[in-house]
Simulated scan of single mutants.
Amino acid sequence: MFLEVDIKEAGYSPDSPVLQDTKFSIHSGELVGLIGPNGAGKSSTIKSILGILSDVKGKITVSEYAYIPKRPIFYEGLTLWEHIDFLFSTLHVDEKQFNEKANELLKLFHLSSVIHHYPTSFSKGMQQKVMLILAFLKQPDLYIIDEPFMGLDPKAMNKLLQMIKKEKEKGAGILMCTHVLDTAEKICDRFVLVSNGKLIIEGTLDDIRKESGLKQGSLLDCFDVLTESENDD
């Protein structure tokens, strides 16, 4: 098991929990979609897993992971290749194989020509691609991906989906937070639906259909029924 979450309460202070009664797990070779309305508790769930939330009551067990944030984060003053080189310095891997993989990913995402440029000056889509490259170079047991499709063009999205499939086949576990429900429906093995700071349901699409009462409903249709009392921020 690469991730086990059993949160009783979590928040930024002991007196103000923003997340309650949230329990789920991710196993080897599994892609789990974390979904919910804006302000439902998705970000708080991820922050709890990452150890960022200051007050968490419960138990979280997490394997070695790579985190791809919604908003790319870079070191100012470091070029793209220097980011890659810095990542290498933190890993215990063969340098030749690592560099070969890095160049393969740079070519895949059409970033080979800007390896000596600063990612802070890149477009949002290019920055997102850099974050993906760094994560996939790490080759962790678990990927935690927050809104991975933001800023990506259709070709880049397709490449990302192919890479996610390959990582699953290698045995990696993946937690993906996304609002792109039509894509999530096609690729996720299970779903964690949170609303109003609580877990509404955890299970397969069939489980969600049963809970919503829509036997043939799409994930979006079921989502609407199960979160109909929610208002977006």
Rank of each mutant, 00 (worst) to 15 (best):
Q97P: 00
F122S: 10
I200R: 13
L108V: 09
L199Y: 02
P72K: 03
L111N: 11
L152N: 14
K198Y: 01
Y75G: 05
I115Y: 10
F122W: 12
V194W: 01
I144T: 07
L199K: 13
Q139Y: 03
P69G: 00
D182F: 12
M150N: 12
E82C: 05
L137F: 07
Q128A: 14
L137H: 09
E169S: 11
E95L: 08
S195F: 00
I73Y: 08
P140Q: 08
P154I: 09
H83L: 05
M131P: 00
K101G: 02
L132I: 15
S123P: 09
Q162K: 15
I200Y: 04
T178Q: 09
K70S: 15
I201P: 01
E104Y: 11
L134D: 07
F136P: 09
D153S: 07
E82Y: 03
A135K: 06
E167R: 11
M176W: 09
I115N: 10
V180P: 02
T79M: 04
F191G: 01
G77E: 15
S112R: 09
L80F: 13
L161D: 15
S195D: 13
L91K: 06
A172C: 14
C188Y: 03
I164R: 14
H92C: 12
K138N: 00
K70Y: 13
G173L: 14
S123H: 03
L108S: 09
K165F: 08
S195C: 10
L91R: 12
I200E: 06
Q127N: 12
G151T: 08
I73K: 13
F74A: 10
G77I: 04
K170D: 07
L175C: 05
N158I: 04
L152F: 14
I144W: 12
L80S: 01
E147S: 12
Y75T: 04
A135I: 07
P69T: 04
P148W: 02
L142R: 11
I145K: 01
G77C: 00
K170Y: 03
G171A: 05
L105F: 15
D146Y: 04
M150A: 13
H83D: 01
T120C: 15
K96C: 02
G77M: 02
V194T: 07
N196P: 00
Q162A: 15
L132Y: 05
I201C: 07
L175Q: 06
T178C: 11
N196F: 14
L91D: 10
A156Y: 01
Y75A: 07
L91S: 06
H83V: 05
L105A: 01
K107R: 07
H83W: 14
I115H: 08
D85L: 04
M157H: 06
L134V: 12
L142K: 10
Q127P: 02
I133M: 06
E104R: 11
E169H: 08
E169Q: 12
P148K: 01
H179C: 11
Q139H: 07
